[in-house]
Nucleic acid binder design. Structure first.
Lengths: 216, 216, 216, 216
DNA sequence: CATGAATGAGCTTTCATTCAT
DNA sequence: CATGAATGAAAGCTCATTCAT
């Protein structure tokens, strides 16, 4: 009982530290944020940090793990809706908009870090695989229902879809004047076209496509 | 004459240092690579580096500028071909494949750095604008010729296209088992569908699309 | 209690570092002494110095502040004696003599540093003002009692007195063979003449002036 | 002949470098100014500096030597006037006033440097001795003519006089609001009193002393 | 559980000086 | 006479981590 409480408290404190680290990493990046910064943000002493995490890298790993878990759980929701394409598009909005910018920045940090740090690469790859599987399964569902092009390789398409959303999200840095709303609309249209079956590609779903594209 | 030679030599040496820095930054990232590393790689003494660049950041900036310039010059080639869509697709291949992995890694580094360093953000934004303009102009050409959907906002579409390629390139880190050839094929197909006019979206160009998609 | 002890210990350690810095600065000057020197002298590691002071300049400032405070507190004593002139002269001895040479050297360093470093100039000016005020007040007292020339501007006279003592102290460097005892005697005589009222300037106090001046 | 021209040119260039160094040292101090700074100011290349001076210290030494020589030559003028006291006072003005501030700053630098660097100490001491001798000789002249107190030790008095002027000059740093004109007046009065013979100490010369002192 | 003192390697940068041309 | 490329030691400072309390 007491043991359980201790474990809970320990977990809670770890969480507080991770929250502080999240803020620091978003602000300064994995390399740019120092353990001192994190401790100050978490309001603990520098020595105490090592009571909860054996190293700075462990913090980064835990943070990435947690962050990806949260994103992946968003994907889980996909499986429950009826219309495959609609359920897919409904998730797109979430990655855009101001409050998601921190996550986007962390995503880029993760990519940068994973390209150099094998243990972080593994985490990233594990979650990517999981999310891609979920997406691919959904696409397969759609193919069975005739909502998705049967000639598409679901795994490959899922990969491309993830890359597409990631890449367009990153454009916010390359072009700060980007109009998010219009971007999301065109992005959705593009995703629809990617997965829609041949026959319906002229009129993908009931989406009022013409208005969407007519943005000039 | 002697003066010209001196300037040439200076430029050559600067270039050698940038080359060394490129290797270090690809290997360890902008923050991860130290000036000492760069000097060792360039085979110069630590002090001598500052004969050519006033700071480490100046090296990063010069490198990014040069790298983006080289990429942008690739884009310039787009303007010369007849078929808009074909000229666009022909450029896609180049971003994939093993020898381009370093550039992809640097691209991610740039994004990460630009999100925190305003002066680097500016460089990135300047070149992004330039490349997007070139692409958008090409799309406008295509629209006039009936090769590109007239309802498309060229600027927005160009932005999405860049993001799409960037994002899919980054998937190589998230999923190392990715089949590059197939990915490129699907990517091209997707790009074609994005820009193709309504009428031809069932049969985009002479590309044997069905085989392409039938990848299972 | 524990908190108080901690603060005390911190202050004590800071003091030890300042003592070490004092030795280094006296030996090599503010610029000539390195933080490494100070750490070696204080027997701490190079990084630990920054646990107590945010920068080398902060050490210099703290040291100057402390040093001037100590000198200023000497001046405070002036206010208590009866005979204004005697109390003034009694303080002169202290600035001369071998054990005071380090302070004299630091005084010169301060002047040199203050002429370039505004934040140190401010400290020096603040304390100068304070000491001059004390001196000027004493002179005003003397004027009321008829011990000091009523035509003298107390503030200006105080400034000159400080400059006089400083300058003569510095002569120890320009002329190492200087006879300190005789110098102090003549200095005192000069100071007496500066402040003494017109009437007594031929026979300043009960001091056997003739012997004092007859130093050949 | 050509040899002579060469020597002249060499001397001229050395002089230009010393002038540049003077500006740098006044601005940043002996330690604060780098050889690079001096070269930039003198518009020569870093390597070329060592064609004229074997080291930075040699520049400092040459500069100090030259500077003191110039000051000493001012003192030489003292010997020619009739009234000892007047000739002495006439020199005081020169050390004050804005255009002399650089020399005052260098004076402090010299003192600081001499306290650590024996070879510079020697130069300073040599010139101090020379100037003190000149002053002392003048005082001896005055004693013979009855213009100067016969009980005064000329050497000691000369030393004190130099220190007095130096010290008061330095007060400009400790108190930037100092009124130079009034300071000089009081300083002159003090110097007069120091050297004037007993009999005349109540009425030192024809100087309108009362107005001078009545500055409240 | 918690502190903060302490470490030492490593960072970017500066500097006086030397050398090849 | 003149350049500027080149050196390498040392500077002030930061950092992840450890340890005594």
């Amino acid at each position: 009982m007491g043991r359980t409480l201790d474990v809970d408290k320990h977990r809670e404190k770890s969480q507080q530290i991770l929250d502080a680290a999240w803020r620091c990493f978003v602000r300064d990046g994995f390399r740019g944020a120092s353990t001192t910064d994190i401790c100050r943000e978490a309001k603990i002493s520098p020595g105490h940090l090592y009571h909860y995490f054996p190293s700075k890298e462990a913090i980064v790993e835990a943070l990435i793990e947690k962050s990806l878990q949260s994103i992946a759980s968003h994907f889980d929701g996909i499986a429950q809706e009826e219309d495959v394409i609609q359920s897919l598009l409904s998730k797109v909005h979430e990655g855009f908009g101001k409050p998601y910018r921190p996550n986007m920045l962390l995503n880029i940090e993760m990519l940068a870090e994973a390209s150099r740090n094998p243990s972080i690469a593994k985490i990233l790859q594990r979650y990517t695989q999981r999310m891609r599987s979920l997406l691919a399964d959904r696409l397969r569902d759609g193919q069975e229902r005739g909502q998705v092009d049967r000639q598409l390789d679901p795994d490959l398409a899922a990969t491309i879809l993830i890359g597409l959303v990631d890449g367009v999200r990153g454009m916010a840095i390359k072009d700060p004047s980007l109009d998010t709303a219009k971007t999301v609309e065109l992005l959705k249209s593009l995703m629809t076209r990617l997965v829609a079956p041949e026959a319906s590609k002229n009129a993908p779903s009931d989406q009022p496509k013409k208005r969407v594209l007519n943005v000039r």
